[in-house]
């Protein structure tokens, strides 16, 4: 269903897609400030003007492991056009996250999430969950669970053209 919503969005028909009452789509992305694994302060609001792929993931999430290398490739491919991936790990501790970030050669900031951040985004009770945030700071699309990555890339391209 998320994929269908995205396809309509990509076709410029977003207004015709009724968002669910709890959906964050078309709302400003909830702001947060966290340190990444290298200790650098990540302020989501500072990404205004860029297209952001905000990915909530965890090392125990099999689906997330499939997506992350793709996100790293997109960071490389679209970074110069104003595209940034920000990953939020919902792991309980950072040790396995550091290991995974090294193994997957993640080329974007990874911050540690928690229940408070999860609540800000409406409760993250299943992963992966990925938000596409437009240059103006509003959430353009939400991708939950197993996602069609081609569809996600098309959404990124459309957002970069805006």
């Amino acid at each position: 269903m998320t994929s269908c919503a995205f396809l309509l969005c990509a076709a410029g028909l977003w207004a015709q897609v009724p968002p669910t009452p709890t959906s964050l789509v078309q709302k400003p992305a909830p702001a947060f400030v966290r340190n990444d694994l290298a200790g650098k302060k990540i302020i989501l609001e500072n990404y205004r003007g860029k297209v952001v792929l905000l990915d909530f993931w965890a090392t125990w999430c099999a689906g997330c492991q499939v997506e992350l290398p793709k996100f790293a490739a997109w960071q490389k491919k679209y970074g110069a056009q104003g595209f940034s991936v920000v990953a939020v790990s919902m792991d309980d501790t950072d040790a396995p996250v550091r290991k995974a970030a090294r193994r997957l050669q993640l080329n974007f900031p990874v911050v540690m999430g928690d229940a408070r951040l999860g609540a800000l985004y409406g409760g993250l009770l299943g992963l992966p969950v990925t938000y596409l945030i437009g240059r103006h700071g509003k959430i353009l699309a939400e991708f939950k669970g197993d996602t069609d990555l081609d569809a996600m890339e098309h959404a990124i391209q459309a957002a970069l053209r805006q």
Binding site: A115, A119, G123, L125
Partner: peptide, 21 residues
């Protein structure tokens, strides 16, 4: 499962016993 998820929502009177994996 995960403690972060448990903190966000769990079934009343259930105990967090740590990730089975």
């Amino acid at each position: 499962g995960s403690f972060v998820m448990f903190q966000q929502a769990h079934i009343p009177n259930s105990a967090f016993t740590g990730p089975g994996s």
